[in-house]
Nucleic acid binder design. Sequence first.
DNA 1: GATGAATGAGATTTCATTCAT
DNA 2: TATGAATGAAATCTCATTCAT
Lengths: 214, 214, 214, 214
Amino acid sequence: MSAGRTPAPRAKSPDKRRVILDAAVRVFARQGFHACRVSDIADEAGVAYGLVYHYFGSKDEVLDTLFLERWNVMLALIREVDAEAIPVRDKLRAIASFIIDSYRHDPDLMKVIIVEVTRAANSFGQTHIGQIREAYELIGGIVTEAQAEGVFKAEIEPRFAAMAFYGAIEQLLTGWIFGLLPQGEEQFERAKWLVVETVCGGLEAGAGEQPILR
Amino acid sequence: MSAGRTPAPRAKSPDKRRVILDAAVRVFARQGFHACRVSDIADEAGVAYGLVYHYFGSKDEVLDTLFLERWNVMLALIREVDAEAIPVRDKLRAIASFIIDSYRHDPDLMKVIIVEVTRAANSFGQTHIGQIREAYELIGGIVTEAQAEGVFKAEIEPRFAAMAFYGAIEQLLTGWIFGLLPQGEEQFERAKWLVVETVCGGLEAGAGEQPILR
Amino acid sequence: MSAGRTPAPRAKSPDKRRVILDAAVRVFARQGFHACRVSDIADEAGVAYGLVYHYFGSKDEVLDTLFLERWNVMLALIREVDAEAIPVRDKLRAIASFIIDSYRHDPDLMKVIIVEVTRAANSFGQTHIGQIREAYELIGGIVTEAQAEGVFKAEIEPRFAAMAFYGAIEQLLTGWIFGLLPQGEEQFERAKWLVVETVCGGLEAGAGEQPILR
Amino acid sequence: MSAGRTPAPRAKSPDKRRVILDAAVRVFARQGFHACRVSDIADEAGVAYGLVYHYFGSKDEVLDTLFLERWNVMLALIREVDAEAIPVRDKLRAIASFIIDSYRHDPDLMKVIIVEVTRAANSFGQTHIGQIREAYELIGGIVTEAQAEGVFKAEIEPRFAAMAFYGAIEQLLTGWIFGLLPQGEEQFERAKWLVVETVCGGLEAGAGEQPILR
DNA sequence: GATGAATGAGATTTCATTCAT
DNA sequence: TATGAATGAAATCTCATTCAT
């Protein structure tokens, strides 16, 4: 999961802008966006107060940048997956994997995105509603397609199905973030399978099962 | 869905405390907890500034009260449902119904609970982690039981299943809150069925279906 | 040292006004005038909030009352002593005794008077400047007289001498109030002698001493 | 009486920190610590509101700084004097002189120290009890020594004597602060002699006198 | 007399943002 | 680029005082 870093405009110093961004992730994750001060970010980054404002127009812009950087990578991934000629299950599995891997690689960043943006209906969630909607719609499109092919039941509206799928994943991350679910390589891998199995095959015992060996 | 209101110790004035609480719900929902001032609540309630502090120790306490009042009703409902001798599907359906009905009856309150508490990992979510965990565990217990009875697949950990189920519901509410999903009586009723059908029967076409007529 | 209580207008209930006044002394002494709230006084007195305002026009008035009640008793004592035909030393000794006994009988009240009034140059000290000045002048008068009689040196201005004398006493109380000097019956008695001996006879060894046996 | 100012690390701007401190002295003296607002200090200093908080953590800290700055200079002076091989009278005279000169040079600062700290048993007096006690003990030590040398009477406890001495001085300042005693160069000089003469030689006419010519 | 809910002015403190260097 | 002093608009919370009962 290579981050969305621009190819370093000039190979000069340790790229203070990036340093600030990375520091912001840690600070936002630790204290929350509202509870932290711009100076906390500067301190964490080891730079002067005003430098944050040299690179970013405001505190908000720092979070905006962080969110978009990552969210766009996810949108690209979903589009890519969507274009492939593979079974739905594999598509959904790829998406779940990407999100869970994102958390594995940078739990702080995903925590910030989920806690401060994705559900923040009155602040950043509203600002980025377009990007967020895009993800849901892309997933919804995959469901629609699967229904057309007869692989998915037709009576479940794609939009609702997409929300249920994405919501299940986000809730797993929430469980990890809150320390309510056990974490670890094994857990992450298992979670990928579980969420797809649950949403596609259902929790009920019966013919729906696919004896996947992982 | 009888609210957690105490039977009004004295029927004198319009119970200012309740008036403030109800006003707070509207204000928190409209502007968000952080973006609103205590005076906004007082204004909305039509009372003087200081009265908010007469009844509540702080702005935080207002939200705490709101959350606990409702969340405890939900916990009671889940426990009640859990005790009944009915099929798992019915139990999960009852829970989904309760949450969705809660949103139908008071969308502002549910918005506040989800946006400001349930996912607010650095603030109120942390404060009420115990109550929140309780809900997940109760649902997890229902899954465990269903697995013991052979109704649910054994290979999906109950805790993960519970999170997926609850996450799917909360995401539907989030969709309504953000205006991404259509709302209305019909939609709410359908959503109850959808979420249970998705999680229990799975999205995939096949034997898992229960041709429920609703 | 009977307090300046009015002869109880009606012998009815436990005289709430007095109860409030006594409670205020304890609260002012414990927390300081500024740090305590009117409700603290009411709580300490075991009466309702508003009753304080039934008897007193304001929080200030409570302290004013407390101060005047006691200070006037002291002024009366000084005048009385002044009128007697006894040696200066005995007069000063009587005054020192009265103040120290006042502290012995009600340390809280004296603490309040000294801390909140006597040195509070910008608040109550200013309000009661007249009463306070009166005390200093009466003492100054005693010194003047002693000088006229040739008992006291003539080159020390009476006003300065009066301040030194009163200041020495008040500082002893301050030492007790701050817990810097040991307290107790014996200490109090000794203090009465010490302060007079110091100011009249001086600290220096020599002929000035009066081998008083106490 | 060189103030406790650090030698100005950088001579750049008019050292806003110092400007604020000096302004605070004037404001505290004029209105009293409790009756003034932080904005009054800022206004008096001609700086923005927030700058006070840039340099000081709180309103309290401003007063703490003011007190300690000056009090420590006094403690140093007393220690210095104590170490010299001069008569007690000269030692006490030096201390009285220092305090009175402090008032002469900056009456506002001494007013603040006496009114807001030295007698404020429930607030700042308590905070700085250690520093305050130190002064009394040093003076007490001087008395003890004088007694050992036979210069001072042995039957007056040093601690009490120290309090009487310091209290007499502080009361003179209080007299000036309240406008009860005449001020002026001549008065200040005379006061230095008076207080020492009173406490050492006593008010009584007789052998105790030292015909000092000043 | 007695109660305590209700009022609202005002104080401290915070902190995003600007800007001179 | 980089710094951090300086700004000042808010926001929370306190609490003396009022007043209907």
